[in-house]
Each structure stands twice: as C-alpha cells, then as structure tokens.
C-alpha cells in the first residue's frame, strides 16, 4: 500500500506529518483528509471556536502534492 503524508495548515500552526500512513489508494487518502478536517473542527467547535481557514495537503513519499483539502470544503455550510 502506498504511504500518504497529511500536512495540516491552520490556526494551530503548521503540523507536518513525519510518519505518514499506508492507505489503499488516493481516494482513501482523500476520505481520510475530509474525515480528519471534520473531526478536528468538531473538537474546536466544542471549545467554542470554528476556524475554517485551514487546509490539509496530502503528499506522497517523494513530497509530491496529490490532494489539497480546504477545511471549508469538508462542510455544507448554512449561515444565518
């Protein structure tokens, strides 16, 4: 299985992924990125903060950018 690296850029600062994760394919990597955005934003929301300015860059072992998921893309937003 190929290894994917998920580098997070947001209000918490840049969080480089040093170890990477083995996944079946790029679509599994894309699903994990979206799940992770939802999980992290949910936790922040419980603390009263929603910051959708971040993004996750998914790279391969050779540091090529494969997918970039903006936090805001992970949600259907309804605002007042």
């Amino acid at each position: 299985m190929p290894r994917f690296f998920f580098h997070v850029h947001n209000g918490h600062g840049d969080i480089p992924d040093e170890s990477g994760t083995d996944l079946a394919d790029q679509s599994a990597a894309s699903r994990l990125a979206v799940d992770s955005v939802r999980s992290m934003v949910s936790e922040d929301a419980r603390r009263g903060v929603i910051d959708l300015k971040g993004r996750i860059d998914v790279k391969d072992a050779a540091d090529n950018l494969l997918i970039s998921v903006d936090f805001i893309e992970a949600f259907d937003l309804t605002l007042p």
Partner: peptide, 13 residues
C-alpha cells in the same frame, strides 16, 4: 476515536 491526522495534531500539542 480520532483519525490519524487528528491524532498527530493532538500529539504535537
């Protein structure tokens, strides 16, 4: 109950 990416953020904290 966290994804690996979220876990990385938590461990970094």
């Amino acid at each position: 109950g966290l994804t690996v990416v979220h876990t990385n953020r938590v461990l970094r904290e």
